[in-house]
């Protein structure tokens, strides 16, 4: 899977979460996904806490991308 495809997917998924196009994802944004994804509100909060590496309450594209590459390759690639 090419690097461009991964970047493209990362942006697509980030925008699926950041529906107000703010440039970051909040805990509330993740909770809103509860209806659209087969995950519970608690699991979505768990995902948010896992991805929010600096625990500042906002998910940046970089944090989101690190989590996605960890999922794809088993290690964080910023």
């Amino acid at each position: 899977v090419g690097q461009n495809t991964i970047l493209e997917k990362t942006h697509e998924f980030f925008q699926m979460c950041d529906i107000e196009n703010k440039g970051f994802i909040t805990r509330r944004d993740m909770q809103r996904l509860n209806g659209g994804l087969p995950l519970s509100a608690e699991e979505l909060e768990n995902v948010f806490d896992t991805l929010d590496s600096d625990s500042n309450g906002y998910l940046t594209l970089d944090e989101f991308s690190s989590g996605f590459s960890e999922f794809l390759f088993g290690q964080k690639v910023s």
Partner: peptide
Amino acid sequence: DPNMKAGAANEGVLANFFNSLLSKKTGAP
């Protein structure tokens, strides 16, 4: 080790999350 368990659980929920986004994007049931 409880930390190991928490790490594995987080990995699982992350995998679940990204797999859900992938299938939502591709429109797979």
